[in-house]
Structure formats: C-alpha cells, structure tokens
Design a binder for these strands. Sequence first.
DNA 1: TCTTATATTGAATTTCAAGTTCAATAAAGG
DNA 2: CCTTTATTGAACTTGAAATTCAATATAAGA
Lengths: 145, 145
Amino acid sequence: MILEKKKSFNEFAVAKGLRSTRQRDIILDIFLSTHQHVSVEELYLKIKAIHPGIGHATVYRTLKLFVEAGLAREILLHDGQTRYEHVLAGEHHDHLVCTRCNAIIEFENETIEKLQDEIAFKHGFIIKSHKLEIYGQCARCRAKN
Amino acid sequence: MILEKKKSFNEFAVAKGLRSTRQRDIILDIFLSTHQHVSVEELYLKIKAIHPGIGHATVYRTLKLFVEAGLAREILLHDGQTRYEHVLAGEHHDHLVCTRCNAIIEFENETIEKLQDEIAFKHGFIIKSHKLEIYGQCARCRAKN
DNA sequence: TCTTATATTGAATTTCAAGTTCAATAAAGG
DNA sequence: CCTTTATTGAACTTGAAATTCAATATAAGA
C-alpha cells in the first residue's frame, strides 16, 4: 500500500512536471509511516529529528502537494492545529474527537450522508464537502475518572 | 427579545460579581443588533465605527463573557475566522456554508442528531458538542454562473 | 460626598500557526 | 558539462487571538 501511494504521487509529480527531490521523498516516507491524523507540527518534528536540514516551509508546501495529489486530506478540528489524514481509496468518514486525550475515532454513516444530501437539495445547495465532528470524552478517558 | 437578553446578561454579570461598564453595554447592544453569525473582526469594526475608543481586547473578552452567559456560541468555520452566533432558547442547529459568498444557512435535523447519539454510544463516547457543516455553493451563487 | 480597593480597559506586545520572499542550490534536459 | 528553472530553507511577514500592565473607572464603605 505504501508503494502504491508512492507510485501514485510519482505519477502526479510527473504529470505536473514537478522535479523529484530528496526532501519530498523523505516527507512522503515519513508521512506514510505516521498514524491517520498527523498535525503539521507533529510531522515536522518527526522529520526534523531524522533530517534536521528540512525546513518548515517545505513541509507545509509538500503537504499541500499531497492533498492535490489525492494522498492526504486537510482536517481542521477544534484546537486550531491543521491535521492531515491519509486518504484511503474512495472512503469518506467523519470524526469522534476526545477533547481530553485528543484521540480521533473515525466513523461512517450512510444515512447521515443521505440526509445531508436531502438538506442541501432542499436549500438549492450544491455540496462540495462536509464536516461532521462529534466532540466528547472517549471510553478510555471516562474510565480514568 | 433584545431586552430579555440584556436582562439575562445583567443577571449573569451580577451573579458573577462583574462591574457594569459602558463598554460592555455598547458591545452587547451592537452584538444584539447584528445578524446571526458575526465574526469578531466584523463586530469590532462595527463597534469601532461608532465608539472609536473601544479596543480589540475588550471585544474579545466581552464576547467570551457572552458565551459564558449563554447569549452567544462560538463557531469556527473553514476560513479561520471565529464567529459568534446568537443563542436562541433551547435550539441547536447546523450550518450550510456557501464557499463563494460566505452565506450561512442554518438547519436542524432530528434524525441526524439521533444517529450521532447512537454512533457515540456505540463507541463509548459521551458527547459534549458536535459540529456539522456542509460546504458548497448556495442557490444564489449557482444562479450567477 | 470622598476614599479606597479592585475590576476593567486598551495600547502595545506576544504568541502561534501558516504563508511568503528570495538568494542559494539542485534537478534534468540538451 | 552547461544552462534553465524548480525547489529549498532561513528569515520575515501575516493575521487572529491572547496577554500584559499602567491608567482608569466602578462600587461599596466611611
């Protein structure tokens, strides 16, 4: 799967006439090796630890490329930190966010999606994207008390 | 209704031992006279135009007080601008956001809410709040093309 | 009414994420 | 190898929001 994604990014890069650089390879490698929802800062630090030369700006720029290439998706949660999540083929999901430990659990619900379509249609809206986040306390954190 | 809200804020202020100040009166007045979803900056400029003395910091602080007092609710949409919406008794709603003209349309959907409760329950989550935003193009903007 | 303790204000500063600039560097085709 | 030009990264800028702190205003008591 990681190889597939690398290949897919490569194709995107070629199609766009981008040059292949060491930095982008590194950032892609490390991004692919992280968990589902990395914040930019988190990723940056992880990269910096192994390749201290790589700058801030490059990480930001490259993540935006990943989004363009369809490898990543930007998510903005409650805390003002931009996160990037891995895009898995065809799937869409929403998030349960624990406001105590910041755990993020994904879920899908076909019925909710359909209801959204209906609502948008009723208001003459064309949906481009949507965002459903449920904030609360996860099972583990509840157990802590 | 505006009077009610003023009274309600007053009660909150008294209960909290806050002093009554000209600035807070002004900010409340102007907040109550705005449309549903003002951004801080928008409100600040509106206030500044009439009462040039009032500072940035006071507007921020006072809006947070309104939230505490239950008069306003903070909403964070796609564009990184914090908005405050008026809280009307007991109601909860979600938003359709036009990414072209920034129009915000509110909607309520009981079924979606119920489905969310089920999802949270299934994952052992206790819901504190949630956020559903549908982004797209509104009817008016679609007509423009 | 005057005094005093302290809550509040607002200009200025700080913070923090994110974006931008631009000279230096590196990739890739000729 | 050379040349063109994309890319990089240190430093800087931006913009929203928070914080600081001296000056001011409020409210309660004398």
